[in-house]
């Protein structure tokens, strides 16, 4: 029984990573109507960045996050300008394959530069745990959980109470109306994409202490994030966060009770079911971005 509680808690905590990845994805999908297939590769790049900051200059991963976030904001702005903006007025398949192309390039760039080896760092606190009622709570996982929740809350306030945030929501609701109200939609798109990418960057830094990095690491995370985004309802940040924690839970539970290899099949099946019966997601209304 204790083990079960332990598994449940560590699953929910790990959901924080999925939350950080899927918040960005749902924001980009909801506002720009774009599926970013390279989203997982941004996570991979963030992991490598954190890894090398640690290996070369002995920077703590959590400190590295302070550098990674603005760096990834710029990275996001740049890739939006070069790759995404030219696809916006073209048929939908163009952006799908441009982002897939970017993901192929980033994956193989990593393979070429860093080889396919699994790399991980060792930080003293990776194994730290708090003991509450006989349950061990792993310190890095707790950090992931808390940051995930804080980011979601922060983003909620940003979207509702700042001018830029309101502009983003207005653009998501009706691009043309927003344009007529004098909102610079192009700029909104650029900022939205950059926010999404910098959240993934943050996720990468927080994940590094307890995970390994390799060129294709992003793929499994982006698949989970797709599931979370759809389950949560397109553009719903709250939905994506709750779905992320649910997936973290389902994943560890099914890995514990059933074969770990089946867990993916399980939540993909759940995913297709949700799509079919609740196309607007478990928590979604028809509105985008809230």
């Amino acid at each position: 029984m204790d083990i079960l509680v332990q598994v449940v808690i560590s699953g929910i905590l790990f959901g924080g990573i999925y939350a950080l990845v899927s918040i960005g994805l749902t924001l980009i999908m909801g506002v720009m109507d774009i599926v970013n297939f390279a989203h997982g590769e941004y996570l991979m790049v963030a992991l490598y960045t954190t890894y090398f900051l640690n290996q070369l200059w002995n920077v703590d991963p959590y400190v590295a996050a302070i550098a990674v976030i603005p760096l990834f904001f710029l990275f996001g702005l740049l890739s939006e300008r070069v790759l995404i903006r030219p696809t916006l007025d073209k048929p939908a398949f163009v952006h799908v394959f441009v982002t897939l192309g970017l993901s192929i390039i980033l994956q193989n760039l990593a393979l070429l530069m860093f080889s396919g080896n699994f790399r991980s760092i060792s930080v003293p606190y990776a194994q730290y745990s708090y003991e509450i009622f006989d349950i061990l709570i792993n310190y890095p996982r707790l950090v992931i959980f808390i940051v995930g929740i804080l980011v979601a809350i922060g983003l909620h306030f940003f979207l509702h109470y700042t001018w830029v945030g309101k502009a983003i929501r207005a653009t998501a609701q009706n691009k043309n109306a927003a344009l007529l109200m004098g909102i610079n939609v192009q700029k909104v798109y650029a900022i939205t994409f950059a926010i999404g990418v910098s959240l993934v960057g943050l996720g990468g830094s927080l994940l590094m202490p307890i995970y390994s990095v390799y060129p294709t690491v992003g793929f499994q995370f982006v698949l989970v994030a797709f599931v979370a985004v759809v389950m949560g309802g397109l553009g719903s940040i709250k939905g994506a966060v709750i779905a992320s924690f649910l997936i973290g839970l389902v994943e560890t539970l099914s890995g514990f009770f059933i074969d770990p290899s089946v867990k993916q099949a399980l939540y993909f099946t759940v995913f297709i079911m949700v799509l079919l019966f609740r196309p607007y997601g478990l928590f979604g209304k028809k509105t985008k971005v809230a």
Binding site: G101, I104, I105, N108, L112
Partner: peptide, 15 residues
């Protein structure tokens, strides 16, 4: 010799 380079070029051509 350069594992992955062919796929990088491939991705670039695609884009």
């Amino acid at each position: 010799s350069f594992n992955g380079l062919h796929l990088i070029i491939y991705g670039l051509i695609l884009i």
